[in-house]
Simulated assay, not measured.
Amino acid sequence: MDDLVTRLSNGEHQVRIGGPDPALSELRRRIDEVGLVFIAFSGPHGATELGVVVDREATDVSDADWGCGTGQVHIEGNLTLNRVPIRCVADIDLSLLTGVGRVVPRRVGADGPGPVTSACAASLLERR
């Protein structure tokens, strides 16, 4: 598996809302209308910003008070990072636009996408 994917899938990491305009109103617009959110993972190896296609069924904004800029949103979505299909999961504090996030490698097959198990990951690597 790719080194970056391995690092980001190892536990939770500090994240922040990224993109060209990391503001509360832009985050709301991106979740509600655009369906694409930029989430930046920071760490000792530098920052990695991911463009996450929002999974509207798994994303939860029920704790958000958009008018006051408080509460928390849970964002989930799929993307491909360095040719590896992944799912990004992040919990964002709206007052700071920061939080914690993680990456989960996925397998894509006849049964649809699902998390990659260690045995499955080895099998995928052998096919490449």
Rank of each mutant, 00 (worst) to 15 (best):
V100L: 10
A23R: 15
G43N: 04
Q14E: 14
A119W: 03
R87A: 07
F38E: 13
A47C: 11
I75M: 06
L97F: 01
G46M: 00
L8A: 09
R87Q: 06
T6R: 09
A119T: 08
D2P: 00
G77A: 01
R7S: 09
A64K: 02
R16C: 06
S25D: 14
L97E: 00
V15S: 10
D3Y: 14
V103C: 08
I92V: 15
G18F: 05
F38V: 12
C68N: 13
A90Y: 00
P85T: 10
A64C: 07
T98Y: 05
L24Q: 04
G35Q: 08
R7K: 11
E12G: 13
E76P: 03
C120W: 15
G112H: 08
H74E: 04
A90L: 00
V84R: 00
M1P: 15
E33W: 09
H74F: 10
R16D: 05
G109I: 00
T117A: 07
I31L: 14
V103P: 01
S118I: 15
S95H: 12
G19Q: 04
S118H: 07
C68T: 10
G46C: 04
P105N: 12
D63F: 11
L50Q: 06
D55H: 11
G67A: 13
D60P: 12
P20Q: 11
V37D: 00
V52P: 07
N10E: 06
R30C: 06
V108E: 04
P44F: 09
L36M: 11
S62F: 07
A122R: 09
V100C: 05
H45W: 10
V104L: 12
G51K: 14
A23G: 13
H13L: 03
H45G: 07
G109Q: 05
V61I: 04
I86G: 03
A110I: 15
N82Q: 13
E57D: 14
P115A: 13
R128S: 10
R107K: 14
T70G: 07
G71F: 00
T117M: 03
H13D: 02
D32E: 11
N82P: 05
V89Q: 07
S25N: 11
L81K: 04
R56Y: 10
G101Y: 01
P113M: 15
V54W: 06
L81G: 09
C68S: 14
V73S: 03
